[in-house]
Amino acid sequence: MSENDRNDAQFARDIFRALPTTAVPAGLEARILADFDRLAVRRPGWLGRFGERLWPGAPAWQPASILALSLAVGLMAGVFVPSPTAYSTTSDQVVTAALDSAPVMDFDKDP
């Protein structure tokens, strides 16, 4: 910092120190607290807080609609997408496998 800069800085400090301090009007504090009270009345319940954790900053309808949409997609999939068991025939083809015995891997012998 040059000598000139230092003098400018000192001048600025002196100017502002000579100014009176700004008092806070009581009415302003009351207005600001009234805003707080107004918002506190509208503070969300546990469901709202859960939504806030799920999707911070979003209005409640956003997480709610996404939840509803995913539920609907799940239900549609459950109803309309055929499951693999739907392809099984009624013929008596039963395959059994013993899960508690070691598999036989002897390829020389016929089963």
């Binding site: 301090t21 009007p25 302003l28 504090e29 207005r31 600001i32």
Partner: peptide, 28 residues
Amino acid sequence: HLPGMLALARRMLSGQAEAEDCVQEAFL
């Protein structure tokens, strides 16, 4: 924080009423 914020806003805006509105908005 209110005294410092108000003082800053008042010097920035050169007007008490506007400065008060400004800090009220900030606290909101």
